[in-house]
Amino acid sequence: MKIAVTKFLGTNCDLDVCHAVKLAGGEPELVFFTQENLDSYKGAVIPGGFSYGDYLRAGAISARTPIIKGLKKMVEEGKPVLGICNGAQIGLEAGFSKGTLTNNLNAKFICKWVYIRVENNKTPFTQYYKKGEVLKIPIAHAEGRFYADDETLDYMYKNNMIVFKYCDETGEVTEEANPNGSIDNIAGVCNENQNCVLLMPHPERASEKILGSDDGLKMFKGMIDYAKRI
């Protein structure tokens, strides 16, 4: 069960992601951004970091490198593709879902534990969660404010493309629980086919109890089990 873990210049969460994929029973393999063909992999994770120093816009440069062609093909073929933090920014820049991620409302880098609520448990990554389940997972980003215009947002709700929302400990979606000013507290989205999930929080940093939470591990387990079936 080989899973591609992409590496751009400035990716720094790749080894953490590899560890989480292994914990979930997968076989991670680091793949450099120059590789275009990803046919031998059953799924892919785009880890976080600061690819290309966030030059121009976070994820903008990475989204124009050769590996994007292979990732796009995977998304189109229905293979599970997960973008985390900078990986989510790259995925949205590459057009894998809709909307964009831009500067936090308080104009600061935010690094802290947050709670997110599962809005859609029909994706490979969220299949082992209950709808409405609250997960404790950390965030670490400066450009994580999700934005889409009203028409796009409407389309995304109609097509079940909203996967996670920031909430409080009890699962209430409140303004106080919104760390970065994301529209409707949105923390994670997916494509129409539901096989590509892009989220700002870091599930790999919440994949073992010793880290403070293992709420994120099921995302990788869901991914691996889904990949086995395709």
């Binding site: 121009l56 903008a60 124009r64 820049e93 934005y147 889409a148």
Partner: peptide, 9 residues
């Protein structure tokens, strides 16, 4: 269109 601007924002 291809790189410099993000049409969403």
């Amino acid at each position: 269109k291809k790189l410099l601007a993000n049409p969403v924002i």
